[in-house]
Amino acid sequence: MSKRSNEPFLWLLFSAGGVVAAMLIPIQLFLFGLAFPLGWLDGPGYQSLLELVRHPLTRLYLFALCTLSLFHFAHRFRYTLYDGLQIKHLNELINTFCYGGAILGTAVTAYLLWIIP
């Protein structure tokens, strides 16, 4: 019996992450990364942002956003190195770095969202 490939599963995560990243990251990056720090717009205060993040739905939203985006990154970056630099001999190392990083990131995200007071 041949070993089942987990490629379809990884592709599914990549694809879901691609949608999430495309739909949600631009606006959030624009606001938190540029508009608020540069003073173009007034961001939420500490208390209101904490309350927002505390909400179970926001936690769920942030969990999905962070983890799916990380798996999107892992899959795509792996193939960037594979196709772009053609470093096939480092496959094992690259896979460990990419998917390992995504799994670690998932654990960190879950932990952080869990312990918010």
Binding site: G33, Y79, I116
Partner: peptide, 29 residues
Amino acid sequence: FILRELSSVFVAWFVIMTLLQIDALRRGP
């Protein structure tokens, strides 16, 4: 094509920044 694929690095950067933000938020004002 390569630039499109490289966008994934910036997606990862955004996630790291968001996690740092959540961490700072839970630590206090």
